[in-house]
Simulated scan of single mutants.
Amino acid sequence: MDVPTGFDPTFILALNLAGTFVFGLSGGLAAVRARLDLFGVVVLSGVVALAGGITRDLLIGTPPATFRDWRYLAAAGAAGVVCFFASRLLERVQRGVLLFDALGLGLFCVTGATKALDFEIGPLPAVLLGAITGIGGGMLRDVLLREVPTVLRHELYAIPALLGAAVVVAAQRADSTSPVFPALGAVVCVALRLIGLRYGVSVPTARGRPDDGEEPDG
Rank of each mutant, 00 (worst) to 15 (best):
L192P: 00
D212L: 14
V3Q: 07
P125N: 04
L184E: 03
R35F: 02
A126R: 02
Q94A: 14
G24W: 12
R193I: 06
P182T: 05
D57Q: 12
S176L: 12
L105S: 10
L90Q: 10
P182W: 07
T177I: 08
D217P: 08
A86E: 08
T20C: 12
T205N: 10
R56Y: 01
E215Q: 14
L192F: 04
A170L: 14
P204F: 02
S202R: 14
G53K: 09
S87V: 02
R193L: 08
G28R: 05
R68I: 06
L107M: 14
V3M: 02
A171P: 09
V43Q: 01
G80K: 11
L124V: 11
L17H: 08
P179G: 13
V47M: 12
M1S: 05
R33S: 06
P125D: 00
A171K: 11
V168I: 11
R207K: 15
A186Q: 09
N16V: 01
A131D: 00
D8K: 14
S176Q: 11
S26L: 08
Q94E: 12
S26E: 10
T62E: 05
V148Y: 07
G136N: 07
A174H: 12
R141K: 07
D69S: 11
M139C: 12
T62N: 03
L50P: 04
A31I: 05
A76H: 06
V47C: 10
V203M: 10
S26K: 11
A79I: 13
G104W: 06
I132T: 15
K115Y: 03
P182I: 05
F119C: 00
F84Q: 10
V167K: 06
G136Q: 03
G80H: 08
V48N: 10
T5R: 11
L192N: 04
A51N: 05
M1Y: 03
R68F: 14
R71I: 05
V93E: 09
R95M: 09
F11M: 14
F23P: 00
A79G: 13
A79Q: 13
N16F: 02
G213R: 10
N16L: 09
L124M: 07
L98R: 13
H154V: 13
F39E: 05
A76C: 04
R193Q: 08
T133N: 04
R35K: 15
S26T: 15
E120T: 02
A131S: 03
V41R: 04
P182L: 09
R35A: 11
